[in-house]
Design a binder for these strands. Structure first.
Lengths: 155, 155
DNA sequence: TATGAAACACACTGAGT
DNA sequence: ACTCAGTGTGTTTCATA
């Protein structure tokens, strides 16, 4: 079900238009979508379902304010595991709820993690756990010139 | 309207339950939410609207498959701007559609960017532009032990 | 694949507690 | 702040082109 750019579905302009509309408002209903693309509601429903089942639409997300949840501080942590500790690091990242994202990457550091904290002085709690399995480098987020955004759609 | 953990709204268990339900399915309708929390639909709607207006619910997102859009490669790029080039880097990040995220951070490197590419051999196109304003360090994402996930809710 | 009609469910409003 | 009830839409299925 994962897909390449060769997906026939994305060669159809109306599908792309539906994605564009849904991106602007993921909760837009079938009827409204149908009006805007000039089709009947059942047809639109069918198309959106196909886009979901093809894995082009991965899902719908609720975006919450981390600060409101008590995690106003955000940081990136790179982890360079000690020999043999690589799986332990991934495991630990999975287990810690403060870790909202963890990627295995090329380069001197093997992992890039994004974490959220209630305060800066709670950073050590997290780092200490990773330091048991390797070295860490931390970059605290000061501001966000480009907040998470979508990639361009075809055409 | 941004909010701290002291938000009264999050001290109410039913609000937290609503957030939890909406996190599992952001397109769940008012009626369904109402059934699950044992309240009337208008009451639920009122609560969700408050959560939105308070900035606790930041928004709803459509998550698309980058590979399906023709961007199967993901990388983190750290940029260390040359003296005086700092605003240029942020500007450039904003302008490039491959950049899906850009943060100003502490540490030797001033920016962390997340980028998506159609192929590995298209990395230079992006890096060259940043290299005009400073140094870059690139980490290509090989796998993702923890895909983007939400923070824990109160209680 | 698409549409149109029909049955059903939902969202929204206003009045009342 | 919540419920209840009424109205207008929206959603979904099915038959059909």
């Amino acid at each position: 079900m994962p897909i390449g750019l060769q997906s026939e579905l994305l060669r159809d302009r109306r599908n792309v238009e539906l994605l564009s509309l849904l991106r602007d408002d993921p909760r837009m209903g079938t009827a409204e979508l149908a009006r805007r693309v000039g089709m009947s509601a059942p047809a639109v429903r069918e198309r959106v379902m196909r886009l979901e089942e093809a894995g082009i639409i991965v899902g719908y997300r609720l975006e919450l304010n981390p600060a409101a949840l008590g995690y106003p501080v955000c940081a990136y942590v790179r982890v360079r595991p000690a020999p043999g500790q690589l799986p332990k690091v991934a495991e630990l990242a999975r287990r810690l709820p403060q870790v909202v994202e963890c990627h295995r990457v090329t380069g001197d550091d093997c992992f890039v993690l994004k974490i959220h904290l209630p305060a800066l002085d709670r950073l050590d709690e997290v780092l200490d756990q990773f330091l048991a399995h390797g070295q860490t480098t931390t970059s605290i987020v000061q501001s966000t010139p480009v907040p998470l955004r979508g990639l361009p759609l075809p055409d």
